[in-house]
Design a protein around this nucleic acid. Structure first.
Lengths: 157, 157
DNA sequence: TCTTAGTCCGACCTTATTGATCGGAGACCA
DNA sequence: TGGTCTCCGATCAATAAGGTCGGACTAAGA
């Protein structure tokens, strides 16, 4: 349960790779193309292309066309959160269907639903978790963060 | 992203309802059947039946057949965690495909994968979150728990 | 004891989401 | 200016979720 899609998985791998290449010590500033990543991690080329294209559209990376082209991180690694990456690929975080319900479309269960509030607390905790973790952390950074469990914030009676 | 299935949603509603009926002040000990829950929360009857049946198989509730039959919580509310409920319906918690990989079947990306370890830390945090929250909390309990962010535990370099 | 109504149980079908693929448009370098 | 390399958008197949149907069991009531 709560599994993230393969596309999101690929996105994380790709960004981690780009970050290391671009900000690492070996070849700083180098542009990296789709093919290189696909071969390195055994990812279907065309699918990865689509993932990177989505990330570019969400302004997490910059695309450079033509020969010697490829992708570059749009920001520094510590400014890109895991939450941003996942949301680019899979849409906004939502444990339940009614997480971002507009005023018009409310679910049939809403009226008597007693689990919405506690679940939203859980969701907030996970969001906090993903927002406090960045690409930098995946490169070896060691930030120190502490978050609160939703139960500690008080649950609706 | 990270959305739980509707079946899992229904399971939470149903168990919350059963818990309130069974351990509440109004009709303590009463058996509750599928139809009652389905009507109360506008859930498709047959689908809910299947969900309850799964929960019974995992020994979270007891089924009583025949007229005046229905379901009863197998344990007290504070002994049933949200994690147990979700796992009964959706299978074990796993952010990625390689979360519970057997020794035989490892993914193609495993060799060069640098995101597995950090992701497993995130997964552990979520697991901790869900394991520390019980049905009791959904009835109005207010336990105080604190958990640690995965980043704080140190991420692989 | 037999009947009958109410309940749970298991297999099946339909729909939606994800995973993967193909051909085309644009940009850079020689 | 031609050719090649790259990104881009639309399309198709596989998988899982959502929902439905009829059968088996139990226990109360005559």
């Amino acid at each position: 349960m709560l599994k993230i899609s393969k596309k999101a998985d690929y996105a994380l791998m790709a960004l981690q790779h780009i970050a290391v290449v671009q900000f690492g010590d070996v070849t700083p500033g180098r542009v990296v193309n789709t093919k290189e990543i696909a071969e390195e991690y055994n990812i279907p080329l065309e699918l990865l292309a689509k993932v990177l294209q989505t990330l570019a559209k969400h302004a997490l990376i910059e695309s450079h066309n033509g020969p010697k082209g490829g992708y570059l991180l749009a920001r520094r690694a510590h400014q890109i959160t895991i939450a941003q990456i996942l949301e680019s690929i899979e849409g906004p975080l939502g444990i339940t269907d009614c997480s971002h319900e507009k005023d018009g479309e409310l679910c049939m269960q809403r009226e008597n639903c007693h689990i919405r509030t506690p679940l939203l607390k859980v969701q907030d905790s996970i969001a906090q978790l993903l927002n406090n973790m960045t690409l930098q952390d995946m490169m070896g950074g060691t930030p120190l963060i502490t978050i609160q469990s939703p139960a500690a914030q008080g649950v609706e009676r």
